Structure formats: structure tokens, C-alpha cells
Amino acid sequence: MSNTALITGASSGIGAEFARYHAQKGGDMVVVARRQEPLEALKLELEAAHNVKVTVIAQDVGTPDQAKALHQKLKDAGIEIDILINNAGFGGQGAFLDRVLTKDQEMIDLNISALVTLSHLIGNDMRTRGGGKMLQVSSTASFQPGPYQATYFATKAFVTSFSQAIDQEMRKDGITSTALCPGVVSTEFIETANLEGTGLSKQKAATPASVAKCGYDAMMKGELIAINESALSFVLNWLVPLMPRRRVLKMVESVQVK
């Protein structure tokens, strides 16, 4: 039985750990990211350790057109995807009016538009074949607005909502979609999002491997949402919704500002 995964943003962090965990399960995969060297190193590591096939595609998937190009490459290579892991994404600290607008537009393109495009194209392939699984990497940021990361929090709110809705629609076709919503993770995210020196950067971070396992296992069970820490899950699901909105905004702001 085929068990091929497509993993975007696979060159480091959670994406690379998804690849390692899937390889431990005996699955083949296509790993995608802009940087070719770490992808090739990951391919050598996993093929040697687990006797799986790893296909490397060094490509940006930051726009819908690039996502379509990736899908066409898979078609041309005759690769059928059974598991889609939409992991690529980025954030960016700063007051919205002070940020470069094009950076936030690029964030929307990658975090939302490319994710929707891949989900649609590969989802239709899955439906034709009778089933499949999707994992949409979101964030605990999706549960409340985020002053000083306004666009990032909003993109992740979209991802969590979108993932649940399409899961409900696609279950009759044998396809599930799971939203993985981790808290702070020890990856390049803090640095690339310019969050050094914030309260968020000082919080205890989960390991990429533990987050990847949490999301992957939840996906295989067909769960709607996976939060990697039970305490976080309780706060987000039971406390935050009951708090005054202005207090939530100030609380989030306090860990985002420098």
C-alpha cells in the first residue's frame, strides 16, 4: 500500500522532524524547501537509516503559482501523494503600520494562499484515488488576535478554521484534515520572525521532534486539532474564550513587544 508524504518547509525544524518520523514509519516522501543542501543531507540520512525513497524538490512554494508548479512536478514524475503536510510558513514581529507591507503580503501568500492551493490540488487527487490525510501546521496563535504579529496570528486563525471546515466536507471522500497548533517551538522561527528579546522568546520551547510526533499521530487518528501541551490546550479552549477581549489583547501584546 502506498504511503507517500509531501512535506513543505522540510529543510529544518518541525518539517525535517516530520520527515524523520514518517521515515521511521516506513513511508516514502517528497521533501520541499528553498534550500537544496539540507534537503539532500536529509535524503541521505533517511534513505540510509530507513530504506525509504526520498525525493528532493528545492523550490519556493510561497505563492499559489509556485504551489501549482510543485503539483505539476509531482504529476510529471508520476508521484501520488497520500499524506500532505503543509508545514511551510513564517511570521514577523512589529506594529502593523511600521512593517513593510510586501512582507505581510508574502506571509499571506505562503501561510494561506499556497496552503489552500496545495490542499485543493492534492485533495482532488486524493478524492480520485479514494482517500488521504492532510496536516495543516497552524499555531496556538490561531486562538486569539496578536498585536505586534497581527498578520501572522490572523493567517493561522485562517488555517485552523479552514482545516476543520474542509475535514467536515472531505470525510465522505475518505480524506481527513488536522490542524496542528503548537506553542513556542525551538526552531528558527523566533530568529526569522525577529522575535528575539520578546517575552515569547523567553518562554520554554518544545522540541521540534515532539511537536512533529504530536501532529503526525493526531493526523493518523483523524483528529481535528492537535495542541502539543495539555496546559496550553486548557488555557486556549477554556480560559481565553471567557476572558474580556481587551485583556486578551493586552496579554498577547505583552509577550510580542520588545
Rank of each mutant, 00 (worst) to 15 (best):
P38I: 10
Q105L: 15
I81N: 04
R34C: 07
N237P: 03
E17G: 00
K202P: 12
K53A: 05
V100I: 13
V100Q: 12
K202H: 10
K172Q: 09
V30N: 10
A69N: 09
A41W: 00
A157G: 15
K75V: 14
D76E: 15
G130Q: 05
L115C: 09
R245D: 10
G78Q: 02
R34V: 05
G123N: 08
F158I: 05
K53G: 12
A218K: 12
V52R: 07
L97T: 15
G174R: 03
A69V: 07
R245W: 08
A41H: 05
L115Y: 06
S142T: 02
G92D: 07
K156S: 11
I85L: 14
G78F: 09
T8N: 11
L195E: 06
A10G: 04
R20L: 04
L42G: 06
V240P: 05
V159T: 08
G123D: 05
V52A: 10
L118G: 09
L39M: 11
D28S: 13
K73T: 11
K202C: 08
H50G: 01
V252C: 01
M1S: 14
L101Y: 06
F153M: 07
F234Y: 06
I166L: 13
V137P: 04
T4Y: 01
K172T: 12
S254N: 11
A154Y: 05
S139E: 10
D65S: 15
K75M: 11
Y21P: 00
A33Q: 08
T187Y: 01
L236F: 10
S230L: 12
G26V: 15
E229H: 00
K156G: 11
R20F: 03
L46M: 03
A19C: 09
S186C: 01
V248L: 03
A179G: 06
C214N: 14
